[in-house]
């Protein structure tokens, strides 16, 4: 028996940020990420009848998005002909005299492990955000993630500054409690 219901009217409010964040870590281009997220929602809409309810809506949308990301790379590779990898740096006579350090991996560069941990952390933050009431999540994202000034948010959402700080306080308390178990 299916456990999950599908409701496309709420997709963008509930999942767009999560899908966007998932995409941005894989394509590193904001515009392309936005397009891929949009395409995912549209593809989801077209294949709604295939949703069996076995997985959550979000998991189902992510599986569509993964295919979209693969298609995107396929497309750009076919445009280029094929992906080229050239390693000419070390044997080039012109590079003689270059600092040896330049050939060594940058210790401050992100390792695969860092990337994975960041991704897990982002997932955890999104999960916690999805548990907040919509208004709280919206204010929290604008203030904390997008970094808008208090005044801008108040004008945009038509709330007072004290109202904003009450919402922020509740959101931060809930977010800290949610993340505390695994991340603090």
């Amino acid at each position: 028996m299916p456990n999950h219901q599908i409701n496309p009217n709420k997709w963008i409010d509930l999942y767009s940020d999560y899908l966007y964040n998932f995409t941005i870590s894989r394509v590193s281009d904001r515009i392309i990420a936005q397009d891929l997220v949009q395409d995912t929602f549209l593809a989801g809409l077209k294949s709604m009848k295939n949703f069996k309810g076995e997985a959550s809506e979000r998991t189902w949308l992510i599986s569509i998005l993964k295919r979209k990301i693969i298609d995107h790379y396929r497309k750009i590779n076919s445009i280029k002909g094929k992906a080229e990898v050239r390693i000419t740096y070390n044997d080039d006579a012109e590079s003689e005299g270059d600092w040896l350090e330049e050939r060594v991996a940058d210790p401050f560069d992100k390792t695969a492990e860092d990337t994975m941990e960041n991704e897990e952390l982002s997932d955890a933050i999104h999960n916690c955000l999805s548990k907040l009431p919509l208004r709280q999540a919206e204010v929290f994202k604008m203030k904390t993630i997008e970094g808008f000034e208090t005044e801008v948010i108040c004008n945009e959402l038509n709330i007072t500054a004290s109202n904003l700080w009450v919402i922020i306080h509740r959101a931060r308390t809930a977010m800290a409690a949610c993340l505390k178990e695994n991340w603090f």
Partner: peptide
């Protein structure tokens, strides 16, 4: 806890779609 939350969010480099983009996406959808 509040300070830890700030640090974690900073470290995660989490991003969100901006409101205008989301509104446009919603209209098209």
């Amino acid at each position: 806890n509040n300070t830890k939350l700030t640090k974690k969010i900073k470290v995660s480099k989490i991003e969100c779609l901006d409101k205008q983009c989301k509104e446009k996406m919603k209209r098209d959808f």
